[in-house]
Design a protein around this nucleic acid. Structure first.
Lengths: 195, 195
DNA sequence: GATAACAGACCGACCAGACGGTTTGTTATT
DNA sequence: AATAACAAACCGTCTGGTCGGTCTGTTATC
């Protein structure tokens, strides 16, 4: 029987790729970047090391795929929030804050920890910086041309980023009340009423 | 001849410790955390691996010493800026911004890159998180009780941190003009005139 | 429909090098 | 003489990556 392939069912190899990626994320989230080895992925995934290397020809390739997926996940969440916003001015900035600190589909604890791990890993895989940097440029451009005072918008973005990084690196334990107050204030500022 | 020891001259061992620490910093700054190995330190310092392990009994110990030095360097710079500030309100916050983004004695390119490396390394040495976290609590407390609106003060701090991290991780290339505009705005906000 | 030809998926053994750390021995300092 | 400061050889482990080969399924040929 000929297997008819719909749009959203994957070939065997593609399934394996997904499973490997998922395992890699789990490892990185649970045990840190240093624990991301082929052996570990092999164990978690049931595949042999050779099998994994069949799909990702090097560790760089594996990490690169993770970073790309990560970035794309964030941008999807961002775009989603952006379309569900009626007010024009500050729309992008609001979406940015929401996608980073709020409860967008993209975010969540394990996404955050993954972000921390990836950020840390950036040091060891310098070429991956380009991917992140490009996304960063897009964000900065979006924020600067959002109908807000560019400086204020940038500050909102930086504070958002600072809060997120501090949290995901687990260096800061900001009081939850303070956190929501901060987020609320940042959101306020995205409404040109103030200024 | 008896060598009289003044307050600021170090014993031979202490000198070696300093040299090892300095070499470790250079390595971490130039080649990243992953390149920080005993062999590398040994090469850069001229000492043998055994000699290094004589002073730092494990890699953890070495990294711990680096983190402690780093934190203490920052706090020195912070304290320095704090005392040279006449206005009472917002003094700590101003010092914080200055010590992080300005030209305090503590800051500088190699200090920044060191900070990035250490931040990244925090993932592999979880116990060191405590050190950083404690310093972080001190900063947050300082900022919240600085005669400013605590939420605003926190946002200033977060934006500062975000800008610094983005820069040291090299993920953001903020336009210099924008950067100084941001810093200026943040500094403005530390003067309770506004509010 | 049987079979040959091919391709992708995967295994498992292996390797060369790196790394953290130990041990043992030597030199300098007091 | 005692102790601190080193040196050098060495060890066990782990890691990324290679390689030859197998197994499975699909396509072409007859």
């Amino acid at each position: 029987m000929k297997r008819q392939r719909g749009a959203s069912d994957l070939s065997k190899g593609e399934i394996a790729r997904e499973r490997i990626l998922a395992a890699a994320e789990t490892i990185i989230v649970d045990k840190g970047v240093a624990a991301l080895t082929f052996d570990e992925v092999s164990e978690q995934t049931g595949l042999s090391k050779g099998g994994i290397l069949h799909h990702f020809s090097s560790k760089d390739a594996l990490v690169r795929a993770m970073v790309e997926r990560f970035v794309s996940l964030f941008e999807t969440g961002l775009a989603g929030l952006e379309t569900h916003d009626e007010a024009a001015a500050g729309r992008y900035t609001r979406a940015y804050v929401g996608a980073t600190l709020g409860n967008a589909t993209s975010t969540g604890p394990q996404y955050d920890r993954l972000g921390a791990a990836i950020t840390a890993a950036l040091h060891n895989f310098p070429d991956l910086l380009l991917i992140v940097r490009q996304q960063n440029i897009r964000c900065q451009t979006g924020v600067e041309n959002d109908g807000l005072d560019p400086v204020l918008a940038t500050i909102i973005r930086l504070a958002t980023e600072g809060l997120w990084l501090a949290e995901v690196f687990d260096v800061m334990r900001l009081d939850p009340k303070m956190k929501s107050a901060v987020v609320a204030r940042l959101m306020e500022w995205t409404h040109p009423a103030k200024s």
